[in-house]
């Protein structure tokens, strides 16, 4: 019928799912912070990706177990070891690459879990209101004021060395309240919006309203908070590892710093101390900058002036 012909003409007018991303990208591109953050992140991601290569070349480049048979103490940069070696002759460059992988793993998974928890709890609290809201928010307050690092230290002194995934889980469990507060506030304001009321009048159930109408509208905010949560997760993991409570089976940047300190190379091996320190600062900074730029994409008020007709 007429439809078939008409659609062709209007195909360009049609809305594709990719469009909001393209539009967001064009705004993102204009943010200097975003560009720097993204470039840094791509570098770190490449590092994490390439961390699998050195052990393939020679087993002595394995970040944990590979020891250069000819070296038995810390040495400076050389052609054989680009960044030098640690106290027992392990390659620092491959350790640094492995650290990037761990940072991503810890950061993203802990952030993802805490965002998942925070979003779910925030939506439930905001949407149901009254008793459930009060209960959940008081719980959030209680957890929010607990010092995460201290609690993990106590836990690990109780249960001995913690595995890296346990640490991730604990970080996630302690980091959701901030997100849930924001999501709850957003849900509260969405709940009053006529399109939610329209769905109610149409007969939609509470679950349908939450998943179909509220969730798509709060998810962008959740993902924004995820970038900030990644930052805090990486810092917590690094701090734990540096204090000696990290997972002894993984090579993270915090762990590298701990080795520098424990073996007394703090002040005489800058080639060993600086790279992980700089990496930790830069990766947290880059996630933060990415978050700021995304904030600009999501919140029209932060954008630069755009013409109104």
């Amino acid at each position: 019928m007429v439809h078939a012909v008409k659609t062709d003409k209007n195909i360009s007018k049609r809305f594709r799912w990719i469009d909001p991303f393209q539009e967001g990208w064009s705004i993102f591109k204009e943010s200097i912070l975003g560009k720097i953050g993204l470039t840094l992140l791509i570098i770190f991601a490449l590092m994490a990706l390439f961390s699998f290569i050195p052990p393939q070349i020679d087993p002595m480049y394995h970040p944990m177990t590979g020891v250069d048979p000819e070296i038995s103490h810390s040495t400076g940069p050389s052609a054989r070891h680009w960044l030098g070696t640690d106290f027992m002759g392990r390659d620092l460059f491959s350790q640094l690459l492995a650290g990037a992988r761990v940072a991503f793993m810890v950061g993203v998974s802990a952030a993802f879990m805490s965002i998942f928890l925070g979003t779910a709890i925030g939506m439930i609290a905001g949407y149901s209101g009254k008793g459930i809201d009060t209960l959940l928010m008081r719980l959030a307050d209680m957890i929010m004021v607990m010092p995460t690092l201290l609690v993990i230290l106590i836990l690990s002194s109780l249960f001995g060395q913690l595995n890296i995934w346990t640490i991730v889980l604990i970080i996630a469990l302690f980091r959701w309240p901030g997100v849930s507060r924001v999501i709850r506030a957003q849900t509260l304001s969405l709940k009053q919006r006529p399109f939610i009321e329209a769905a109610r009048v149409a007969g939609a159930s509470h679950l349908r309203i939450i998943f179909r109408h509220i969730m798509p509208n709060v998810l962008p905010l959740s993902f924004l908070y995820m970038t900030f949560r990644v930052t805090s997760a990486i810092i917590i993991e690094a701090a734990l590892a540096f204090l000696g409570f990290g997972d002894p089976g993984t090579v993270s940047w915090g762990m590298m710093l701990q080795w520098v300190w424990k073996t007394g190379h703090m002040f005489n091996a800058p080639y060993w101390l600086l790279p992980p320190g700089i990496c930790i600062s830069l990766i947290t900074l880059s996630f933060y900058m990415l978050g700021r730029a995304m904030d600009e994409v999501l919140d029209p008020r932060l954008r630069k002036e755009e013409g109104a007709g």
């Binding site: 006529p194 009048v201 179909r212 798509p216």
Partner: peptide, 16 residues
């Protein structure tokens, strides 16, 4: 029974 709301800028879910 159905309802038509006042503000069409608010009564449609922007994500749908």
């Amino acid at each position: 029974v159905q309802m038509i709301f006042q503000d069409p800028y608010q009564s449609l879910n922007p994500q749908l």
